[in-house]
Design a protein around this nucleic acid. Structure first.
Lengths: 216, 216
DNA sequence: TGTATTATAATACTCCGGTATGAAAAAGGA
DNA sequence: TCCTTTTTCATACCGGAGTATTATAATACA
């Protein structure tokens, strides 16, 4: 029988190529021919693994989703700083924020692609449902985390976990977009995140960084 | 001499058509031919007023910018609820938020187009600079407003106006995107905004919604 | 070794969309 | 009324990009 090739490995390779291009020139710049050369193969090969461009993009969406959740979950599992910290919830939220923000080329590419997909998801029920799932999952985790922080006395008791999660994720979403376009710089964005997280703590003074949000 | 037609009126009409289409099908769906029929004229006419599609889109960007700032400024000038309210700054911030969020078809269309332009602005220095100006202007105004609120004792003294403005605008940005995709509903988004603004106030209790502002 | 089946590649097809061209219509002024 | 300039429109052109077709190379199994 014929040559045996790991199909999914090939597809992942192609998906990576798409992400590289999308990070560089935007998703619209990901023409099938360019994807082929970026992946180091021929147009015919790309067609061999994806019947249509749409199918390819759908694959990339899920590939992206996998990676993003995996990355966040990794932050959940191995909260290097969190387990050692005296404020585990806050540390985790901060590391989560750092993971979600486009702070390097990789995450920039992923976010850029993600936003392009999101934009095209309006009116594509299937995609929207997928996005909705991911969002709900993340939001609930954050809300749980905040509630736990409250139980542990780490976070202020007056917080509404549900609304706080909405606010936090919206802020990260917005900061991500602004970073992507260059409206903010990484330091500024992180400072805003730390500042916001600080106000959630039960302590009067800041403790995540060395900043003094002091008042007389 | 020939027929006299207000060129800019025609251009605005075309821009409106573009925005309608963009709000309905996304900016990518704004093909020149579709724009023409949406504007109730022929392709040739559109070409007559815009030498190229790119020029048309540039015009739409500025047209959009005009309208958005105008709308926000209107909120500044005539803060119907704000002037009557005992908490002018908070009222204004809330009305500003309501203006920025895509709460009706019009603003949905504008935001959708705006985001499409923003996405395409990566690597287009001219567009980016324009966006940057608008962002800086708005951020500074918000920061000033917050500082004023502090001076008036309306907002907590411990706030950092600069960071607060970044956080607030990022949150609104994120909420806008999420509303657009249907990840949030208008009520939820507004609830999050009110919740966030509430925590900026010097008072312990909520007071942003329909309030008779009695005081101690 | 041969063959069947898959992988890869090259090329052609076709539609779509921006652009260019030229003609017809409209309207203010001589 | 006629002319001139603008406006409007229809249509042709051309390139780009997704898709389809076909050919060639490669490999596992009989």
């Amino acid at each position: 029988m014929p040559k045996k090739v790991d199909h999914d490995e090939r597809r992942r390779c192609i998906a990576e190529a798409v992400l590289r291009i999308a990070g560089r020139d935007g998703l619209d710049g990901a023409r099938l021919r360019d994807v082929a050369v970026e992946a180091g193969m021929s147009l015919g090969s790309v067609q061999h693994y994806f019947a249509s461009k749409d199918e390819m993009l759908r694959y990339v969406v899920h590939y992206l989703g996998e990676h993003v959740t995996e990355r966040i979950m990794a932050g959940v599992r191995a909260p290097a700083s969190a387990s050692a910290s005296a404020s585990p919830v806050l540390s985790f939220l901060l590391s989560m924020a750092s993971e979600m923000l486009p702070l390097d080329a990789r995450r920039r590419a992923e976010l850029r692609a993600g936003q392009a997909f999101t934009a095209r998801a309006v009116g594509a029920p299937e995609l929207m449902e997928y996005l909705g799932e991911g969002d709900r999952w993340l939001r609930e985790r954050v809300a749980e985390l905040i509630a736990q922080g409250q139980r542990d006395g780490e976070l202020r008791a007056g917080l509404d976990p549900r609304l706080e999660s909405v606010v936090l994720l919206a802020m990260l979403d917005g900061l991500g977009s602004e970073l992507l376009v260059g409206l903010r710089d990484p330091e500024g964005a992180l400072a805003a995140v730390r500042y916001h997280l600080d106000r959630l703590t039960a302590r009067p003074a800041a403790m995540t960084t060395s900043q003094h949000s002091s008042h007389p």
